[in-house]
C-alpha cells in the first residue's frame, strides 16, 4: 500500500536519514524503535510531507512520487489518506473535543455538519470520551487529549495512521489508557506505523518491528523474531538498555 525508497534527509550538515526503504501493507502494525536522535521522527515527518526529504521515492496505492519535488496538490491529496498522532497531541486549542475531531471532515472534506458530528461522536465514543465532547483541550488530561487526537486521526478514515511516540509526554498512569485504545485499533485491522519506546506495546501489538540506528534501518523483522532473536549486536544492546530502564 505504502512504500518508501531510499529517503535521504539532512538538516544543514547533519545527515539524519541516510537511505531508508520499507513497505507498509494494509493491516500492518509496524513499531519503529531506535535510540534518541536516530531519525525516527524525521522519517515519519518526511512520509507525511511535514518535512521535505532531499531525495527518495514514495509509492502510495500504485502512484509513484518523487519526494524531493512534490506538488502542493499531490501533498494535499495524499495527506487526506493518512493521519498523524503527535507526541504532544497538538489538539486545536480553540476547538472543543468534538470540533477537533470533525474539523477535518467539515472544513477539509466539505462534509455537512450533521454527518460529521455523527462520525465525530462515534469516534469519541470509541476512545471512551463521548462525555467530554464539549470540553476544550485545556480542560482535558494529557491521556484524554491524546485519545481525542486518536479520534481525530480516525475520523477521516485514513489508510494509515502515523504515531510519533504517542505516550512519551504522558504521566505513567495515563499511558495505559492510550495504549489500550491503540491496541483495539490494531485488532480491528487499522494500518499503523508507531514510533515508540514502549517495548511491551511493540512486542504484544506490533506485527513488525523496525530498528533504526543513525539514519538507517539496522534491523527489520516480525515482532516475534525481533524480540526472540535480535540479529544485530546493537539491537541487543539497545534492548538491554531499554529493558533495564
Amino acid at each position: 500500500m505504502l512504500t518508501v525508497k531510499d529517503i535521504h534527509k539532512s538538516f544543514g550538515d547533519l545527515q539524519v536519514l541516510k537511505g531508508i526503504d520499507f513497505t507498509v501493507n494494509k493491516g500492518d502494525v509496524i513499531a519503529v524503535l531506535g535510540a534518541s536522535g536516530s531519525g525516527k521522527t524525521t522519517l515519519l515527518r518526511c512520509m507525511n510531507f511535514l518535512e521535505k526529504a532531499d531525495s527518495g521515492t514514495l509509492i502510495f496505492d500504485d502512484e509513484e512520487f518523487d519526494l524531493s519535488k512534490m506538488r502542493k496538490k499531490d501533498i494535499l491529496r495524499l495527506r487526506k489518506k493518512t493521519a498523524f498522532v503527535f507526541q504532544n497531541y497538538n489538539l486545536f486549542r480553540n476547538l472543543t473535543a468534538l470540533q477537533n475531531v470533525t474539523v477535518g471532515l467539515t472544513v477539509a472534506r466539505k462534509m455537512d455538519k450533521k454527518t460529521a458530528d455523527e462520525i465525530g461522536m462515534k469516534m469519541l465514543d470509541k476512545v471512551g470520551l463521548l462525555d467530554r465532547k464539549d470540553h476544550y483541550p485545556n480542560e482535558l488530561s494529557g491521556g484524554q487529549q491524546q485519545r481525542v487526537a486518536i479520534a481525530r486521526a480516525l475520523a477521516t478514515s485514513p489508510e494509515v495512521i502515523f504515531f510519533d511516540e504517542p505516550t512519551s509526554a504522558l504521566d505513567p498512569e495515563l499511558i495505559g489508557e492510550v495504549l489500550s485504545v491503540m491496541k483495539d485499533l490494531a485488532e480491528e485491522g487499522m494500518t499503523m506505523v508507531v514510533v515508540t519506546h514502549e517495548l511491551n506495546f511493540a512486542a504484544n501489538v506490533a506485527k513488525k518491528v523496525i530498528f533504526m540506528e543513525d539514519g538507517k534501518i539496522l534491523e527489520s523483522n516480525t515482532a516475534e523474531e525481533f524480540f526472540k532473536s535480535p540479529k544485530e549486536e546493537r539491537t541487543r544492546e539497545f534492548l538491554k538498555i531499554i529493558n533495564r530502564e
Binding site: N48, L50, L76, F84, N90, L91, F92, V107, A108
Partner: peptide, 13 residues
C-alpha cells in the same frame, strides 16, 4: 507551530 502541522495532517489547506 504544531497547530499548523496538525491542521495539515487532517487535510486542511
Amino acid at each position: 507551530k504544531g497547530q499548523l502541522e496538525a491542521g495539515y495532517c487532517v487535510g486542511m489547506s
